[in-house]
Design a protein around this nucleic acid. Structure first.
Length: 344
DNA sequence: ATTCTGACA
DNA sequence: TGTCAGCA
């Protein structure tokens, strides 16, 4: 296929296609004898993915990154492009849903108050803008692939980051108490160490991770687990889909606002009376003021509060507002589990 | 008629 | 990214 036909089919200009090629986004495009570019099927899929990534607001450079680590055989490459697109469509779908809700709120306000107070407009608009920014942030986290090769060694050796890893996973598996026939989701599944333990229960397991390299290894270790590329802020599954959700050593990577967004997403994909188990290391927070910095020696800078991220007031408040019963468990001082069960 | 490269907006 | 020029 020549460039003109392609541009018409994909709805972008020939200039844009050439530009992408020039920037290394389409490395495999062949030329005819007359210098004409000739596009094959794989180029088309790749281009389509590029367009989707662009529409999601990703910069050219970042797209290149996302499409680069392609040690994959041809058969899996197409699959990768499609998974990427599914993931992006999920984020876009959530965006649109959010906008629809915002609009609806404004209509409601207009109806009840006759006139729309300016601060309400600002409030809704700010909220919308904020949410969009938060969701777009996941792009920055797409270079997780390098870590994948050594991930399983890391969790053994880097005990600062993964304290009592094995015990924590075992504990989590016990807490979530999966039963046969249930469908569960592991968010940030990595190479499947947690989800793998749940397989013996007879439950059907799915996993989401940002890194296709991790998922590849997971697939090798546990062929039974269905995996999808995606992120915690836009879970690529329909509403009301899982009996339980687990997640280990993932939640702490999110900032407090992202954590709440993640909870909203988990809530969306969870069935009524669904349960959730979040496992992560306990983060020690120290509140250091300017005063203490100037007047105290380093050893005096006492750690003023120690708590699990999952015990953030905002997080606990969220669970209360959404009618979850929560229980918190400490494992060996350094790592904890938060078990939440939906009462609805 | 179509595509290509390069330059400039 | 759009557009335009000058070529093959």
């Amino acid at each position: 296929m020549k460039i003109n036909e392609l541009s018409k089919r994909l709805g972008i200009s020939t200039r844009t296609i050439r530009f992408y090629e020039q920037n290394g986004l389409l490395p495999s495009v062949q030329r005819e004898h007359n210098q004409y570019r000739i596009f094959v099927e794989e180029d088309i899929w790749r281009l389509q993915t590029i367009i989707a990534l662009r529409e999601a607001g990703m910069a050219i450079k970042e797209i290149k990154q996302a499409l680069e680590p392609q040690g994959l055989p041809d058969s899996q490459r197409l699959r990768y492009y499609l998974e990427l697109q599914r993931s992006l469509l999920t984020t876009q779908w959530l965006e649109m849903k959010r906008m629809a809700e915002t609009t609806e709120q404004m209509i409601d306000l207009l109806q009840t108050q006759q006139t729309l107070p300016i601060q309400e407009i600002y409030h809704l608009a700010d909220q919308a803008k904020h949410l969009r920014e938060l969701r777009q942030n996941w792009q920055d986290q797409w270079n997780f692939d390098q870590r994948a090769q050594t991930h399983d060694e890391d969790v053994q050796t880097r005990s600062e980051d993964y304290p009592h890893y094995e015990q924590a996973l075992t504990y989590t598996a016990e807490l979530i108490h999966a039963t046969s026939g249930e469908h569960g989701l592991d968010l940030g599944i990595g190479t499947g160490n947690l989800a793998g333990r749940l397989l013996t229960s007879g439950a059907h397991l799915s996993g989401v991770d940002q890194s296709q390299e991790m998922l590849k290894q997971c697939q090798n270790k546990f062929p039974m687990i269905e995996t999808r590329i995606g992120n915690v802020l836009a879970i690529p599954y329909p509403d009301n889909h899982f009996h339980f959700v687990v997640s280990s050593f993932t939640f702490n990577h999110l900032n407090p606002q992202q954590q709440l967004l993640a909870l909203t997403e988990i809530h969306r994909v969870l069935k009524p009376h669904g349960r959730l188990c979040l496992t992560d290391r306990i983060v020690v927070h120290s509140a250091i003021t300017d005063d203490s910095l100037s007047t105290s020696s380093a050893s005096d800078l006492g750690l003023q509060s120690t708590y699990h991220e999952l015990q953030h007031p905002a997080v606990l408040e969220w669970f209360e507002e959404h009618f979850y019963m929560t229980n918190y468990y400490t494992i060996e001082q350094e790592v904890g589990c938060l078990l939440a069960v939906s009462l609805h």
